[in-house]
Design a protein around this nucleic acid. Structure first.
Lengths: 352, 352
DNA sequence: AAGTTGCATGTAATCGATTACATGAGGTTG
DNA sequence: CAACCTCATGTAATCGATTACATGCAACTT
């Protein structure tokens, strides 16, 4: 409305209304726009004198290239999409940070999509991606876009580089960055068994979740290695949340014969479960040992402190971002990167 | 590498390499590109027949508008930047979710910048913003961009709509969404005093932080209201992290006369502090009461469960996003929105 | 019937960069 | 010395949408 008026008047005034364009820089440096562009993108192809004049003009005008124009022409956005199932989950925040810092160093920005279990959102972000708003994506949600829908017309194929982080995507020919969930779960199970526990309960992740399947396999591996029988009655359903841990705890409290140890496949569940046990007057680890998975920040300061599997979350994020950057810049990347986990022994698990 | 080869061959094959453009849709629907554009942006200005043909053509081609082209012309990105001091901090994740869901509903995407205390990053994102990559920003970091630097050339003024969330920005003429930190801190202090505590310690946030200043004022208000003296020896430095709580706990443990209650200005610090007290053989709340602030997820399941101030984090995020969207769409927004907090009484605080 | 209004639509300018191609200067080679 | 190459630079096409302006037609007014 009145902006136009201001714009007209501003010519003689102090406040430049429009941001400087490449043309303004070119004029000031007395070169063509092509030279300005080259001075920034490929400085070695511009004479030192011209480059100096261009840089000076840029400093003087405060020129910042218009990303939309750049993207339109070059088809590069310097943006990466990070798809995650639940932004509010503590587990992801440090991973995100690892991703963000690595992307940032390479000049990429990060767009976050919290799917929140909504297929609409997933479709939206699939379209978003197909529209070319990002150069690549990190998938933390365990599956590719739009694998569900099939219909008339092309389903907007996504052809940009992708990497899968944490939750491997079976059959997808993209780099997978993860830990060895099966080995880690087996390790924890054997640790519990080695302390004399013979009735070990297992609080699971969501059914069909790939992490869950691997950890569950690891749990069974561990039982077998320790010569313990597998008892379906000791498998409690969960979904990695605090509330699931609380519910699993209620289940246990209500039982007449209880396990002596519980392996929760997330720290959140372990903390929720311990809470319920305390409320029922049970002690950890005296009455029942509790183990977690992930080693989130609160694991070390829980009461009692939590024996768990340490996941290098920041490094996972960094590795995923690096792999993606490799792809984006035309380099190749290993198809599978597995980072080491660590069994962290604290106070929530004790010998029988 | 071999992608190019595939591209060449694909011409006669099944896979369309290029995404459909508005021209393709226009041709198929037998209308001009202008009509296609209008059919999407202002459907009421297009005849029902033309609209139907356009929609059909869009469905057939899988057309998605190119955001770069759209942004270049219309100067709208439909992107919002969220600036936060620390992505790995649990406190922010639920706020982010509130922001994200509200933005999403309004058709905006969210770009996250984790400043991580780095001035470089701040400068980068200031440039990012100045370059017009986002339509607006939510600032959770307590200050505006680039208030520090002054130099030759225009410092790339940022003129897009901004809102401040949680940490108010004094003097900035932008909507501020927050809680009444002072009143909440006062409330908690009076609660502790009402239970008979007379030596109440206070674990602070970072010096100069606006939240800290307000909460500290509230603490003093509360002391005064309860007729208690202010004792500088009972003020412990902190920065809202678990580690700061641990350190404050070590300080307390080492003292000969200890306070009977500790008011930590974040739940993280309260949890870290309790951890240290336990390790030293002290009991909460029998030996010492501990109160927190924020009511993060873990507050309810900590052992003992944490008496704290509940902040409506999701609603804060939603309110900030709504305010920003109002501004982005040319509506006005209240300059100050204060959401209600709640004193949540749990087990970590007991009468003297 | 002439003039006015409003609607649906098309034409083409425009946003601001990148980059293919052209040009001319200076250097090298046979 | 002609032919050729290299290098720095400029010219202008291009990316794919939005939108100002123009146009043509139908309906309404007087």
């Amino acid at each position: 409305m009145d902006e136009a008026g201001q714009g007209d008047r501003a010519e003689q005034g102090a406040i430049p209304i429009r941001a400087a364009r490449i043309q303004d820089v070119a004029k000031l440096a007395d070169v063509s726009t092509a030279t300005v562009s080259r001075a920034l993108a490929t400085p070695e192809r511009v004479s030192p004198e011209a480059r100096a004049r261009v840089l000076e003009a840029i400093a003087k005008t405060g020129y910042v290239p218009n990303p939309a124009a750049r993207t339109l022409r070059s088809q590069k956005t310097y943006m990466v999409l990070v798809v995650l199932p639940d932004l509010a989950n503590t587990f992801f925040s440090k991973i995100l940070r690892g991703i963000e810092e690595t992307l940032f160093e390479a000049g990429y920005g990060m767009i976050i999509s919290d799917l929140d279990g909504s297929p609409e959102k997933e479709a939206h972000f699939a379209a978003f991606t197909a529209a070319g708003r990002v150069d690549g994506a990190v998938l933390l949600n365990g599956h590719l876009f739009g694998q569900s829908r099939e219909g008339e017309g092309q389903p907007a194929r996504i052809t940009i580089p992708l990497v899968a982080l944490c939750e491997a995507i079976p059959g997808a020919d993209i780099p997978q960055i993860e830990i060895d969930n099966r080995a880690a779960a087996s390790r924890m199970t054997r640790h519990l068994a080695s302390l004399g526990h013979r009735r070990i309960a297992y609080v699971s992740g969501p059914a069909n979740n790939i992490l869950e399947r691997e950890r569950f396999q690891g749990f069974k591996d561990g039982l077998e290695a320790a010569g313990l029988p597998y008892d379906p009655a000791l498998i409690l359903p969960g979904d990695y949340t605090i509330e699931a841990g609380v519910r699993a705890g209620q289940d246990l409290v209500a039982r007449s014969t209880r396990p002596t140890a519980v392996f929760c496949t997330s720290d959140e569940m372990a903390i929720g479960l311990m809470r319920t046990l305390f409320s029922a007057g049970l002690r950890v680890p005296e009455d029942i040992s509790v183990a977690g998975f992930d080693d989130i920040e609160f694991a070390a300061v829980a009461e009692p402190s939590l024996t768990t599997i340490h996941q290098p979350r920041r490094e996972l994020g960094q590795a995923a971002a690096s792999a993606l950057i490799d792809l984006l810049q035309g380099r190749s990347s290993p198809k599978r990167i597995r980072l080491e986990t660590e069994l962290v022994i604290r106070d929530s698990v004790a010998p029988l």
